[in-house]
Design a protein around this nucleic acid. Sequence first.
DNA 1: CGGGCGCATGGAAACGTTTCCATTCTTCAC
DNA 2: GTGAAGAATGGAAACGTTTCCATGCGCCCG
Lengths: 350, 350
Amino acid sequence: MDRVATIRDVAARAGVSIATVSRVLNGSGNATPETMEKVRAAASDLSFRPSTIGRNLKAARTRTVGVLVPSLTNPVFAESVAGIQDAAAEAGYSVLIASTDYDPGREVRAIEGLLSNRVEGLVLTVADADRSGSLDTLDEVRLPYVLAYNQPERVPRAHVSVDNVAASRAVVERMSALGHRRIGMIAGRFRQSDRSRRRHAGWLAALGDAGLPPGPVVEVDFNETRLAHRLAPFLEGPERPTAFFASNDMLALATIRALRDLGLSVPDDVSVCGFDGIEVGRLMAPSLATLVQPARAMGATAFECLRTGFSGELQGRAVMLPFTLRPGESLGPAPSTSSQALSERRHTQS
Amino acid sequence: MDRVATIRDVAARAGVSIATVSRVLNGSGNATPETMEKVRAAASDLSFRPSTIGRNLKAARTRTVGVLVPSLTNPVFAESVAGIQDAAAEAGYSVLIASTDYDPGREVRAIEGLLSNRVEGLVLTVADADRSGSLDTLDEVRLPYVLAYNQPERVPRAHVSVDNVAASRAVVERMSALGHRRIGMIAGRFRQSDRSRRRHAGWLAALGDAGLPPGPVVEVDFNETRLAHRLAPFLEGPERPTAFFASNDMLALATIRALRDLGLSVPDDVSVCGFDGIEVGRLMAPSLATLVQPARAMGATAFECLRTGFSGELQGRAVMLPFTLRPGESLGPAPSTSSQALSERRHTQS
DNA sequence: CGGGCGCATGGAAACGTTTCCATTCTTCAC
DNA sequence: GTGAAGAATGGAAACGTTTCCATGCGCCCG
């Protein structure tokens, strides 16, 4: 009696067959007005909700998509998941979610789980789309998927992203226009992230075009949050960078924090620009200059691609979303007499 | 041929019955070593993954929990979802997620969807746990659920939260100890949020205990991000507050931003303390002082309560998690000669 | 040497739907 | 009035599992 009502209960109460109940409730086939009325009344009395699991079994489709992200606590992924969510709800799909916390073991288990749940497809962001066991598995079982944020270089895989190289160029060009000549980069591990590699490539290319020498590159781990000791070695001497490009916003925030801890002012001594466009960046002081990816649209678009079968026949296709450069107080003009002013201020401050 | 393998395919390939395949793969019942070997080989050849949907239908349990949050893009919810995720993965549960974006219509649809998917229980955060149609629905169908963050006042409902009143008192006591005598509050709409009401109550009580008059209360909408015009009226005159307590961190950030826009310095002119303990608060300048809720543990605990049947017989029970006050640069001592210093600075700045 | 016991295995039902097909009944045209 | 067409409805199969029950077999013990 605590059991939830089944279609059989409804049929019994309405005095019809289960076939009729099904037809009435799904609007398929015809039925007498009074039959429809009886059925609807019975269903409502019992607060009957068709079991999607029974339905799925029969229909061999689940109307469920899987989502796999490295972390929900990074706003850029949270936002993209929200976009997927919106689009999925709109289309009547459910969303089964899993996060990996950058743990390969958890990643394969998560994929196994989603596969067992017979999701119709996946939207996911992996560390390295060129070298991913999980993606190989998906290819093997022929389950459609669309990558978000990833931009595979060698293996053709359906993905939605921004043009990371062009976007990074835009950042560097901006810095260059502001008078910066020595521009460093803080980047996620190249071996672990296709995005980081691409963004580094764009940085390097733009520097070349501008005739500037590449500044220091600091590779850091995803969850590294104390960067002061990593940056300190590069901040001595007259050749020190006046600007840093961070390969994502969390790194940019950590960088700003570290620079402050080291007694430097942002942007007076050193400018910082991030990549992602997280919203909190607007609220802080100094507000974060960043290359904005349309995160919500990224998720929504990825879902839409998936739903419209984009990755079935059209495998390996890519959608590039537009990016914009959001100005912010963390990115200012290069200091004019940088070396003196800086040294003095640091002495008085410490 | 593009079909995924079923247990029947495995049985055929191994030359045994489906019953045997099921037993071997589930480790239930006995089987000859060579039979087990054959079955495992066949399953692996076909990369067979038992369909949880077939399994669920039979077992009448889905090993799936539903999660409903107002928004995934608020870090405090994202973090709690991550905690649920962790605990669920650990326990072999899948997580079906839905977000409402503070839209009641979306909320009921989301609940309907989760119900149809036959989740075994829900962890959710609603606007007002005392007046929620969704919760009434859940009570009606007797589906176990545990609230996270919510702290219902009148209706007994299982929940995991911090003691919002005590926590708010702690904030006010801290402010009072720092010399603040006029303390305002920025709060989410009371009608829409039990948390906001509780935190307001704590604020009020603590002020009373300290013999301080209640400062201005500014009620704002959830997604209101430009607060300058709302705050401006309260920042004139000698009786203006020297500190604001914001009922959540997003509001605190918006408040700091607004104060800066109005030419005030945080914390030299006005202090601000938030509530939630979001991580980004640490990274910004000034770093955010905030009442820290253990968000991840909140999610994990809520899931655990759900799993262990907490809300079945033990309906209406509550778990209170410990909170801490995280100091931050946004909360400093009250300005000594506040009125003169402030007025002058404002004039020179604007 | 025979009876019984226990182990390995298979057959079949059940879970909650949808849907094909068959059946009954109405109705209309000739 | 008769036949056919079509509408309303019901019966039953199917989806992929798990699990109860039955069957067959080998072996041990008396």
